[in-house]
Amino acid sequence: MTVAYHRKPVLWDVDYDAPPNKLIAIVGPNGAGKSTLIKACLGLVPRASGQVEFWGAPYRKARSRLGYVPQRESVDWDFPVSALDVVCMGRYRRIGWFWPVTRSHKQAALACLDRVGMRDYASRQISQLSGGQQQRVFLARALAQEADLYFMDEPFAGVDAATERAIVGVLRQLRSSGKTVVVVHHDLQTVPEYFDEVILLNMRVVASGPVRDVFTRENLHKTYGGRLTLLSEASEAVARAASGEGPSR
């Protein structure tokens, strides 16, 4: 699959088959296309070519089995809802059109908050939570989706130690209950401790597979050894050509 963003290819020829029941990290330098990869999997950005299949079915059919934790910065945290309201959003799919959120769904949402250690903060307005707590609320919302495959975009970015422990705990719980989690991750040190599989990404897949096979000094060097300047220039040129704009003056 090749992913283009604003007609500009940012990921070339990604080819990966995720094993079930594993914790998978996507690792790579800034601008490597980590977030774009999971957004492309979830149909949030258009793919230039290629396809994504979940359990052998296209995205549309598998959607109800997917969970998503977006980047924390992607929403306005001044929004007038409480932590519990946000987690309830994960239940909306089950509730369906028009029906209000019933008590049983609230209980389920509270249980999810409990799993991330945030039950005491259920009625707090979300802007009054710390960054790590906000991240845990997002995680709880994904849990409320009761999915089989989770995509998490930088859940560990800028969080405190307590949150990091809570998230890791939840990830392990998910694995032991047979789920698969794909996490965009930026902290190389913790990869071997937290994850089973790793995808090393820098505009293309440098290497992928079990952590102990793939997470080598040599592969990391290849991943972080600078941008492929020629490939990025080619991206720009393809973007310009596709949008029909002439060469920039």
Binding site: W12, D13, S49, M203, R204, K222, L231
Partner: peptide, 14 residues
């Protein structure tokens, strides 16, 4: 693509 970007030879034609 194969040499510098490290892609598999059977992938790069497209």
């Amino acid at each position: 693509l194969v040499g510098e970007a490290g892609l598999a030879p059977d992938h790069v034609h497209a």
